[in-house]
Amino acid sequence: MDLQSTETNNTLIITVNEARIDASAAIRFKDSMRALTESGPAKAVLDLSQVTFVDSSGLGAIVASMKQLRSGQQLDLAGLTPDVAKVFRLTRMDSVFVIHDSIESMTRQAAG
């Protein structure tokens, strides 16, 4: 799974460089997320702005990525495209995550 991570202001930003988190990507996604979050900052944000499709397996893998965090660690989401936002809304998983409009709006808020 093509995930890219950068650390700014004590926040780990993980960018998904693929268009789909679906059944065939779910396990690779979860494993890559574990590798990226098992050390490093207590706050991580998953940038989904390039992801246009998430199915229930992909949704489950994103939830699993939060459940496998270290104690006290946090995972937010950012940049949900319309169809992805809809899956979170229909399943009420939008109430489980802190969701930012974009990485830019989140860092601007933190700076302001």
Binding site: D55, S56, G60, K67, L90, T91, M93, V96
Partner: peptide, 25 residues
Amino acid sequence: QLPESACPVESLPEGGFGWFLINDL
């Protein structure tokens, strides 16, 4: 049925959404 989401993180559902989405949509 929609899996319960108002629960502690460790109990959150990782599946069971598929048929809910099909029926809902």
